[in-house]
Amino acid sequence: MAKRVDASNVTAYYGAFKAIENINLTVEPKTVTALIGPSGCGKSTFLRSINRMHEVLPGARVEGDLTIDGQNIYDRDVDVTAVRRMIGMVFQRPNPFPTMSIYENVVAGLRLNGVRKKSILDEAAENSLRSANLWDEVKGRLGKPGAGLSGGQQQRLCIARTIAVEPQVVLMDEPCSALDPISTLAIEDLMFQLKDKFTIIIVTHNMQQAARVSDRTAFFSIEKTGDPGRLIEYDNTQKIFSNPSHKKTEDYITGRFG
């Protein structure tokens, strides 16, 4: 269920602006990898290029190779929708479909895949909600609107929606930045459980969070505004936070910069 992600020389543009340059990085299956760095350093851009969501924006494009277990997702004959089904994404702000019930939200991805059978959908909905630690809170009101839940619950609903289609890799773009500390904790616990099944890559501005949840950490940075973001250091989380080999990383994690 979990796959290795390999990026080599990934460069991404917004129109003429080069947002990230020559990112090389390998993410092992069933690990949590944190992407940290100052604002505008291209962490989110890199994350969005892993499931080809970057190119959704007008004028945005990606160069380089990104392989999932050896298959380049930027090959010409690759179906974009298949890539996105394989690599799920959780966004910064909880974004459940406002017109759908909790249940409909969870099974939305399955319905897109053409699953019609009620029994399969029911089972998937329950399993995903259980995996997202949300089942006990919502099992009595699956028909209610998903947007009626609290922010933390909505975000777990979005996670349930993402894992319902059984992706190989789950990308999380600052999933806790709009949440209170208790909901944040709930999501962090969830990540621990999910890494048994999925490869998780998370962008976060919260360094304690990176230190708590991730196995490996990648530090991105830019020289100055307008320059493309680069990968400065990528190592075991423990090493990055205790004994980084790069001066810039040390400055950033000790709060002297960014």
């Binding site: 890539v83 996105r84 799920g88 974004n95 406002p98 897109l112």
Partner: peptide, 17 residues
């Protein structure tokens, strides 16, 4: 909301979906 459109795309929806 763009967030909802992106949510659908990230689930592997085509544009019509």
């Amino acid at each position: 909301p763009t967030a909802n459109e992106e949510a659908a795309l990230a689930l592997g929806a085509t544009r019509w979906e």
